[in-house]
Design a binder for these strands. Structure first.
Lengths: 222, 222
DNA sequence: TTAATATTCTAACAATCGTTAGAATATAGG
DNA sequence: CCTATATTCTAACGATTGTTAGAATATTAA
């Protein structure tokens, strides 16, 4: 027979398992990357800039905490979020950190280096403008992430290819670039490049995960 | 000049600080207790069943992560949540754990020992019933927590005093008891006692924190 | 001032975690 | 079958964390 205290302890210890999974920067980054869609281990390792072995260990920990699931396809093992709720939890944690930690606020403010990089835009307003063709919404993530899920009316040009594919964009139309979210630097780089080349470009702070938690619609290529 | 990777790393490391603060069962329990209102160190230690020294260390960690704030009043130092958002984060984490971890689900199902302990009730429905006097909403937490915030129309009888104060309750009216939340066992004990004594009592799963995150109104004594 | 109370600080130990390297496993293709 | 590739497992290390005990600090009351 367990005492009341033992029962209470065991309940909090269960939640601790989730907390521990969220207590590592690389695990958080892996979650963020997986919010963009499923990926094999090596690709995750590359995206997070750590060794495959370490990636595997972190993925194991996240899987043990039931935050991830895995499937094998040929030689690769693809990991994915166990549930959209996991993305919601990540966004909640990041948002809480942004509003609570002044050090994070200053770190993020320091990222706004170029004066022509405007403030993040309103979601619904952007949607209607994109629909009417008044702005071009540009997804600068890798193509596979675009295919999994992207903003409605968005066009895909990965950051790595942007320099070569500038001709595809009309010069006079305003461009709104987005990437994985507030912690991802790809859209910032894209905007800097575009503005240097004479385009009128601004950055959208939200990524697909934030977009989804706000209840806004998404599209996908299948 | 920092590289893109160094910037990205530092952003995730900031969020890690929050994650780490949530990666200890006792710190989680302290947060839950503080969701009920501010308390001095010794009372927190007692409520969490740990030593004052250890409590102080955990509180220090939580304060460093900006989840708590403190104020001195005479000889005591009162801790409180830095923001209601912290309570929201705690509820989000607990909810995620409840839905993701089967071990937690079974642990919680095991708590429903008495068949006369009914399923948790709907918030708005309860509110209107309480307003019309069809049910008695009973807050069995310590009085100071009741004073800080309680459900509308709720009556306070702390669990410790319930046995002596049974006469205050009408026998024929249905009683809905609540405490700190799903992880708190006080309401369960109260319901078990009431039913044994011939009352018709059920337990409300939500506590004040859950109530608030659902956007429902609260009352307080000042 | 001194004594009592509440809390924090410091130091130390054991347990846990992140990280790395080397061995092991599972699959695909020849 | 063998070989190459992708991933995990095992073992080990150093760093970090939870916990405890003893000293130090701050406040109140006498």
């Amino acid at each position: 027979m367990k005492t009341t205290r033992q029962i209470t302890d065991s309940l909090y210890e269960q939640v601790e398992r989730l907390g521990k999974a969220l207590a590592s920067p690389k695990r958080l980054e892996l979650i963020e990357i997986l919010c963009q869609g499923e990926k094999p281990v090596e690709q995750l390792a590359q995206a997070a800039s750590i060794t495959v072995k370490l990636t595997s260990a972190h993925l194991k920990a996240l899987k043990a905490a039931r935050l991830l699931e895995a499937r094998r396809e040929g030689r690769n093992i693809y990991y994915r979020l166990a549930d959209i709720q996991v993305a919601t939890l990540w966004v909640a944690l990041r948002t809480a950190a942004e509003s609570r930690l002044t050090s994070l606020q200053t770190a993020m403010r320091a990222l706004v280096t170029h004066p022509n990089e405007l403030a993040p835009m309103n979601g619904k307003k952007l949607l209607s403008q994109a629909k009417r063709g008044e702005v071009i919404v540009l997804d600068v993530r890798p193509v596979d992430e675009y295919r999994t899920a992207h903003l409605p009316h968005a066009r895909s040009i990965p950051l790595a290819e942007l320099k070569q594919r500038l001709k595809e964009l009309p010069v006079n139309c305003k461009v709104v670039a987005y990437c994985r979210g507030p912690f991802c630097l790809m859209a910032r780089e894209a905007v800097a490049l575009l503005n240097k080349k004479g385009f009128k470009a601004v950055r959208l702070e939200q990524g697909v995960a934030e977009w989804r938690t706000q209840g806004l619609p998404l599209a996908s290529d299948n």
